[in-house]
Simulated scan of single mutants.
Amino acid sequence: MQTRRGALIQDRFPDLTAAARSLPNGFVLDGELAVLDSHNQLSFTALRHRATAGRNARALAAEIPAHFIAFDVLQSDGQELLQEPFAHRREVLEALFVDHQLGPPWTLCPSTSDPAVADEWLHEWTDVPGVEGVVVKSLTGRYRPGVRGWTKVRRRNTTEALIGAVTGSLHRPLVLLLGRYDTTGRLRLVGKTVPLKPAPARDLADHLTAAGPNHPWTGARFTASWNSRTPLEPVLVAPALVAEISADISQDHGVWRHPLCYERLRLDTVAADVPLLDEPP
Rank of each mutant, 00 (worst) to 15 (best):
G219M: 09
W226T: 06
R172A: 13
P239E: 04
V98Q: 14
A271L: 01
I69H: 05
A224V: 13
F97W: 10
V136C: 15
L42D: 07
Y143K: 09
R257G: 08
D37A: 08
S250N: 13
T230I: 11
G78A: 09
L8S: 09
A34N: 08
T223P: 01
T112L: 12
V153I: 14
P216Y: 12
R89Y: 10
R155C: 07
V274G: 00
A205M: 04
T183Y: 06
P145W: 09
L170T: 07
Y143N: 13
V28G: 06
A66V: 08
P129T: 09
A201H: 02
R50M: 07
L260M: 03
Y181M: 09
G26N: 13
G219S: 08
A240S: 10
Q83L: 12
P195T: 05
G78P: 00
H123L: 14
K197S: 08
Y262G: 01
A51W: 02
V147N: 11
A201M: 06
A87P: 04
Q10F: 11
V128M: 14
Q83K: 13
S111H: 12
P105S: 03
D30A: 09
L189D: 01
G212E: 06
S38W: 06
R55D: 13
T107P: 00
I163F: 02
P24T: 10
S22R: 06
T126V: 14
V131N: 05
L208W: 00
P173W: 01
A199I: 14
A66K: 01
A62W: 09
G78H: 10
I249C: 13
T167A: 01
P173G: 04
G212F: 03
K197T: 11
L204N: 02
G254R: 06
I64C: 11
W121L: 13
